[in-house]
Amino acid sequence: MLTPATDDDGAPFWDYARAGELRVQACAACGRLRFPPRPCCPHCHSFATDWRLMSGRGRIWSYVVPHPPLLPDYAAQAPYNVILVELAEDPRIRLVGNLVTAPDAPLNSLDPARIRINTPVKAVFHDGIPRWLAV
């Protein structure tokens, strides 16, 4: 399994994910959410940050099914899906993940032919990695 590469700005996202929480960085000055995490607010240029708990709900904005797999660690799981989820709290915030049938299911647990744009989803966590279930 591949593990996420972290930096100082994004490390809290993964710390919260390991605790089973979906949190997104927000500007403590203007309140706008931002993802991916970064040191400065692109809206008001403040360096003050906060991490807000999200509902974990969203909808599939887009998806792909990689053929052939580009990463050797995923080759045995092909075909698998990669979805782009638009969060309910802010449609400008989109997270990448996999649509699975259960939190601990393999990446190829769902037939890619069943994926539809706009399907409501909810975040679940497995080994500290956010994944998505259709709701």
Rank of each mutant, 00 (worst) to 15 (best):
C30W: 08
L33N: 10
R34C: 07
R34Y: 05
F35L: 04
F35M: 03
F35G: 05
P36R: 07
P37K: 00
P37W: 04
R38S: 11
R38T: 04
P39Q: 04
C40H: 10
P42A: 08
P42C: 11
C44F: 11
S46F: 12
F47Q: 09
T49E: 13
D50M: 03
W51K: 06
R52N: 01
L53W: 09
S55N: 10
G56V: 05
G56E: 07
R57H: 13
R57K: 13
R57A: 14
R57I: 04
R57Y: 07
R57L: 02
G58H: 02
G58K: 14
G58Y: 07
G58D: 09
R59H: 12
I60T: 04
I60E: 08
W61L: 12
S62N: 05
V64C: 11
V64N: 06
V65I: 11
V65H: 07
P66R: 07
P68Q: 01
P69S: 13
P69E: 02
L70K: 12
L71S: 05
P72I: 00
P72F: 01
D73T: 13
D73K: 12
A75I: 14
A75N: 14
A76K: 04
Q77M: 15
Q77L: 15
Q77H: 15
P79Y: 00
Y80T: 01
V82N: 03
V82R: 00
V82C: 09
